[in-house]
Measured scan of single mutants.
Amino acid sequence: MTEYKLVVVGAGGVGKSALTIQLIQNHFVDEYDPTIEDSYRKQVVIDGETCLLDILDTAGQEEYSAMRDQYMRTGEGFLCVFAINNTKSFEDIHHYREQIKRVKDSEDVPMVLVGNKCDLPSRTVDTKQAQDLARSYGIPFIETSAKTRQGVDDAFYTLVREIRKHKEKMSKDGKKKKKKSKTKCVIM
């Protein structure tokens, strides 16, 4: 069974824990209790493949930012979460993405942009803004509501699919490099 290491990042209060708990335990946590770091595991079937999701729910508070490099190193894919009623959390996505790329030393890291709290009427981040940002990053965008469960499975499952595509691409690139290195030079 394939294991996928997913990391949920975003500013404090955007609903990272609520999304994760909704996926794992099928219930909505409405009281806000700032996370330092929590880890969850769940076995699911995605596109006919049974897999184990190892999900790291991270601290959004700035005082825990020193811990970010460590979990970013171990993560295979990242859910970059903002709240649709919090423009600052949307603007912060850029910083999370840049930090992930720096730590992973790669421009090509599996990510999904997630606009959470889409059940709320007080939207300050337009869907088109988020779609445009995701398009500019070359990553999928999904709106979710941890409260109603809308888009929750889709967000995590899409990230797994992005990781699969990335692994497939990397193995193809690896095979191309191996083929090239088999060419021999004969000096007579």
Rank of each mutant, 00 (worst) to 15 (best):
G15S: 00
E3S: 13
F78S: 01
T2M: 03
D69A: 05
S136P: 01
R123Q: 12
N116F: 00
I36W: 06
A130F: 14
A130K: 02
T124Q: 11
T74A: 13
K184P: 15
P121F: 09
R97G: 03
S39G: 10
I93W: 03
G138R: 01
V45N: 06
L113K: 00
V152L: 14
R97F: 15
K184H: 13
R97W: 15
A155K: 00
K178F: 06
I100F: 05
K169F: 03
T87W: 04
V109F: 10
V9C: 10
K175N: 14
G174T: 15
H166P: 02
H166R: 13
G12C: 08
E76V: 15
Q43T: 08
G48D: 07
I46S: 06
V81N: 03
V103W: 14
F141R: 02
L133W: 10
E3R: 12
S136Q: 07
E63Y: 04
L133S: 06
I84G: 15
H27G: 13
T183N: 15
L159V: 05
S181R: 04
V9T: 01
E49A: 05
T74F: 09
H95D: 08
R41H: 09
T87C: 12
M111Q: 00
C80P: 00
G77D: 00
R161N: 05
V103H: 07
T158N: 10
C118A: 07
K42H: 07
K128D: 13
P140V: 09
D108C: 05
P121M: 12
G174K: 14
F90M: 07
V7K: 03
G13P: 04
E168K: 13
H94M: 15
F82R: 01
D69L: 01
K175E: 07
Y157S: 15
E98N: 02
H27D: 08
S145F: 04
Q25Y: 02
G77N: 00
Y96L: 15
I93G: 01
D33W: 05
T158S: 07
V45G: 09
E91T: 01
R123G: 14
G10E: 00
D153Q: 14
K169I: 13
Y4A: 06
Y157E: 14
K165I: 03
Y64P: 14
D105K: 03
D38F: 06
R123F: 09
L53S: 04
E3V: 08
S145V: 08
I187D: 15
N116C: 15
T127R: 10
A130R: 01
S181G: 13
A83W: 01
A155N: 01
A59D: 13
T183L: 02
N86R: 02
D173E: 14
I46P: 03
P121K: 09
Y137I: 10
K147M: 14
E62W: 04
V125H: 07
E143A: 04
R102N: 03
G60H: 09
Q131Y: 14
R164V: 13
C80S: 01
F156R: 01
F28M: 11
H166I: 06
K172V: 10
T74Y: 09
K167G: 07
A130N: 04
F90S: 04
